[in-house]
Design a protein around this nucleic acid. Structure first.
Length: 389
DNA sequence: GATTCACATCCCTGTCGGCA
DNA sequence: TGCCGACAGGGATGTGAATC
């Protein structure tokens, strides 16, 4: 069956994702004996099956391509139109994720406007001239996340505190079998949206990314990031990235920074201060490697020793993972069935309250309510009649 | 600790369309 | 009209975190 498409919309998507038709074709032709041609997809009358294959890439829904309206290539529409270059070379999966949250942000701001909700900026804007350490101390006073023992609880707490400052924090989860992986850890979209990739095996890493993106928010500079501790000491790092890393470290480190700054030089003789750093890591939610990276920047450990310690952590991590895998396999052989599910993203209280208000104001219906919060209709009561915690 | 749940991909099956 | 292969759709599978 053939249907009439608005070819401008497909062309728009290609521009948005910085993709040529020649790059798209192999993606949609996967597994097809008779490949779809360029002429076929660029014709105003397109085979429905072909369109479905195209949409498997872009995930817009078939109606998107049929809309006669020409999409708007303005700076408001996408960060890809606002900023040409990013610190990371973005994978297709990453572009799709960024685009998804950008659209979510736009629809959310429309819903908020219709419901008379305003997200005024509460935290000030800083510049690169301000000292990240001082800014961190100042912001800590304003946000002061409660000390929690578990990393995940701390992350939830921090997201809650940021919600109180009108900052949206969203998480996205990537399952093990996801085809197009996003090669990013997080990003900040103006004016008030931070998005994080769920790091199920390392919440400390995710917490650091959140603090880093908070740095971008404070500078009001948009960026899409892949956080690599090794790069911190890299002089190719941009000033903004450096500032945000410094901010994140001091923001999370708090009073423990003093200990880190006055620590003895870490060598094999004092076992690289490993026990002390572990205890600091546990209280601050900074990962051990993040602290060691700071020591490297402070010249409190040599590059060779740093690499040695880092390799040790990576090895530990690998061994631990292998053991877990083995245990699971053994369980399987013994007929012990282990259950599980993909992790659930943490819901920002700001999102919940916004959607609740919109629902009460009649701006959205029950279906949209569930869709925006990604809940099933039978769980609607939990988010409507109870307080949002 | 047991149960429930989310979701990308795999895999099977019925259907449809091209061709002789 | 009947045969054959390609395809779409949807259920099954794999995975393990969240929740009770």
């Amino acid at each position: 069956m053939k249907i009439e498409q608005n070819i401008e919309r497909l062309k728009y998507l290609l521009t948005l994702f910085k993709m040529s038709v020649e790059e798209l074709l192999p993606l949609i032709n996967e597994g097809l004996a008779k490949p779809i041609t360029k002429e076929q997809i660029l014709s105003p009358n397109i085979e429905l099956g072909h369109l479905k294959r195209i949409d498997k890439i872009f995930k817009k829904g078939i109606h998107y391509y049929l809309d006669p309206k020409v999409p708007d290539v303005s700076k408001d529409a996408s960060i890809f139109f606002r900023k040409a270059k990013f610190d990371v070379n973005l994978s297709l999966g990453a572009r799709i994720i960024v685009n998804h949250f950008e659209e979510f942000k736009i629809s959310l701001s429309a819903i908020a406007a219709l419901s008379d909700i305003k997200f005024d900026r509460i935290l000030p804007v800083f510049t690169l001239n301000s000292n990240p350490k001082e800014v961190a101390a100042e912001v800590r006073k304003l946000i002061s996340p409660e000390a929690k023992i578990k990393d995940k609880d701390f992350l939830t707490e921090l997201i809650k505190k940021l919600a109180e400052k009108n900052i949206f924090v969203f998480e996205f989860v990537e399952t093990w079998n996801k085809k197009e992986k996003a090669n990013i850890d997080g990003f900040f979209l103006q004016p008030n949206v931070i998005v994080l990739k769920r790091q199920q095996t390392s919440f400390k890493r995710e917490i650091f990314t959140l603090a880093h993106e908070l740095g971008h928010f404070l500078l009001n500079e948009e960026e899409i990031d892949r956080i690599d501790y090794q790069d911190f000491a890299n002089d190719k790092l941009s000033k903004i990235e450096y500032w945000c890393n410094e901010f994140a470290f001091y923001f999370l480190g708090g009073e423990f920074v003093k200990i880190i700054e006055t620590i003895d030089h870490s060598t094999a003789h004092n076992d690289y201060n490993i026990d002390l750093i572990r205890s600091i890591s546990e209280s601050t939610h900074l990962s051990r490697i993040a602290i060691f990276t700071k020591l490297l920047l402070l010249n409190k450990i040599s590059r060779a020793n740093y690499d040695h310690v880092k390799a040790g952590f990576e090895e530990d991590f690998r061994i631990k993972n292998d053991e877990l895998k083995k245990k699971r396999e053994l369980d399987k052989q013994n007929g012990i069935i282990s259950g599980g599910s993909t992790p659930l993203p943490i819901k920002s209280p700001l999102l919940v309250s916004t959607i609740q208000t919109a629902f009460y104001e009649g701006v959205i219906n029950e279906y949209e309510f569930c869709k925006k919060l990604n809940i099933k209709p039978d769980k609607i009561d939990r988010f409507l009649y109870e307080s949002s915690n």
